[in-house]
């Protein structure tokens, strides 16, 4: 009991410190690292409540993939410079935000603490957590039976997200720009090559050489182009 309490208090402190860091630190890289701390804390709390699988993907997907993605974007865009936090350009945004936050927190705490330590609601009869069954098996059972439709829809959602991200972050403008290809576009190059080959063909027919070097050259040029 004491160990549990100790663990909880420690992770809670880490979580709160991490979230405070996300909000208060000026450098986006520091924000991202603080976020990792919070995510780890939450993963520990998941384990404490028996949600082992979720704790694992919390670490792997959230901390391992999403935060890395954040860091990538920060580095890519070079926005890792500090942001001024001293004043807000929108009039009254900060006081209003703090007021709203205080209201939300205050009301939630009122609701939570006034009822004592009981959770209202119906205990499950269908998807009860069986102590003998591993957590991952139980989760898999409901995911692939009761929630199979939602599960399939998330796959569609992810596909759409991937396609959307590709479309959004693709560079605008022509696929090949003039700076990269000073000689002209691909079509121009191919046309020029074709003309050259035709001339070469004519020369070949006149001179009647059986040497295939010009064609070989054309092929290498084409490959280089690719």
């Amino acid at each position: 009991m004491r160990v549990e309490m100790f663990t909880f208090l420690l992770t809670a402190a880490i979580c709160l410190a991490g979230s405070a860091g996300v909000v208060l630190l000026r450098n986006p890289v520091h924000n991202a690292l603080s976020l990792v701390a919070t995510l780890f804390g939450v993963a520990v709390l998941f384990i404490q409540q028996g949600a082992y699988f979720l704790a694992a993907i919390q670490v792997i997907v959230y901390a391992g993939a999403i935060v890395i993605l954040f860091l990538f974007v920060i580095m890519l865009l070079g926005v890792d410079k500090a942001e001024g936090l001293d004043r807000d350009p929108i009039l009254g945004q900060r006081p209003a935000a703090i007021a709203a936050a205080v209201a939300i927190l205050g009301l939630s705490l009122t609701a939570l603490l006034s009822v004592g330590s009981r959770v209202t609601g119906q205990a499950s009869t269908l998807a009860a957590i069986d102590g003998s069954e591993p957590n991952i098996n139980a989760l898999a059972k409901v995911l692939f039976t009761d929630y199979v439709f939602a599960f399939e829809i998330t796959s569609v959602l992810l596909t759409v997200a991937v396609v959307g991200a590709v479309v959004l972050s693709r560079k605008a403008g022509p696929a090949i720009d003039a700076a990269e290809f000073p000689e002209g576009t691909t079509a121009d190059l191919l046309q020029a090559k074709h003309d050259a080959a035709a001339v070469e063909q004519g020369v070949l027919e006149e001179v009647a050489t059986e040497d295939e070097t010009p064609e070989g050259e054309a092929e290498t040029a084409e490959e280089a182009l690719r």
Binding site: I104, T110, A111
Partner: peptide
Amino acid sequence: LGISIGGALLLAFIV
């Protein structure tokens, strides 16, 4: 902010 205030009001209603 609008959403937050709305959420707070909703919460107040429930409480």
